[in-house]
Write a protein that binds this DNA or RNA. Structure first.
Lengths: 170, 170
DNA sequence: TTATTTATGTCAGCCATGTTGACATACTTT
DNA sequence: AAAGTATGTCAACATGGCTGACATAAATAA
């Protein structure tokens, strides 16, 4: 019967995609681990959770704690732990919100920005190579599929974040 | 200057892909959580680690513990914990290797297979929808990019696993 | 045959990072 | 003044990684 009426992907193609996603993600997230392993701070070390916080704060300087929580989808107590360490170690600074003084707006320090670059650079190198090999059309298709994999009720919010051009903090 | 000489993807496209991968993976792996949350076993519950084991054992019935370890890339002590629970709860059975009697070959029981289906079905449904929406060409491009994201020194081994057609266990 | 290596299991403890629940503080809104 | 909101914090617990040490049985080399 083959794929005469290919309206729907086969179970086998789907299983293959699921497994590839597992392996690709596993290797992709392992990139920053080597960088993280080199950092030692009093009472612990830095992990992937810290990387995620640094990434999103770097991406949206001045974001509130609540915004960050809604992106990471973790509890404030979980975030508090890593945020405290990042602030104590001088990677992140807080400023009171000018409109709403209850908010603590988050910014990377220079040290934080340097760390962000160090953490993301192997990941960016990986994607640079892959996208160059696969070509622009496949790269766009890849992002299109990723976008569709995101929960529909959040997709718009996520796209707004992801599509925003980088901004300067004067 | 735009993209006249588009040999290399822009930093911005790469950053976007990195973020989309984060969000897509986050939502994708959250699918089985609801199923897992319903299962309770003595002294604990089942989590994503159990799901991964069940998936790969179901995928390659009769695989050895060493093979499973090399796929999951975790320590044997970490695996032992979840494997013990899965065996105790009757999801997985072990058989001595017929060639090498030191090996403990792993198989899903009927109960294990049913659980595997329950766990993966929301993920498969997600991909079925996405691939149908995105079309077969984009779906293939997606898998191609994922494949290239995998560490090169492992890619062949992973592809051999991923491309193998499902087999029957008589 | 004896010695070594290999595949697996297990005990004990540590660490990172998620969870819930309760409560405190400062600021905003009603 | 009262209620709601943004954030911080303390305490306890769960999951799932990790290391190190040691045990057993089977395969393989000396």
């Amino acid at each position: 019967m083959a794929d005469i009426n290919k309206l729907t992907p086969s179970d086998d193609e789907i299983r293959r995609a699921i497994e590839l996603l597992f392996f690709a993600y596993r290797d992709f997230v392992s990139d920053p681990d080597k960088v993280l392993a080199d950092y030692e701070i009093p009472n612990g070390s830095l992990g992937r959770a810290h990387h995620r916080v640094i990434h999103f704060v770097g991406r949206s300087p001045g974001m509130s704690v609540a915004e960050l929580l809604s992106i990471l989808k973790i509890t404030k107590q979980s975030l508090a732990r890593v945020l405290r360490q990042l602030i104590d170690e001088g990677f992140i600074e807080q400023q009171r919100g000018p409109e709403d003084a209850r908010q603590r707006l988050l910014f990377l320090t220079d040290k934080g920005m340097a760390f962000e670059t160090a953490l993301s650079s192997p990941q960016r190198a990986r994607f640079r190579r892959v996208f160059a090999e696969a070509g622009p059309q496949a790269s766009r298709a890849f992002c299109d599929v990723l976008m569709r994999l995101i929960n529909e009720d959040e997709r718009e919010r996520v796209l707004a974040l992801v599509n925003r051009k980088p901004q300067h903090t004067p």
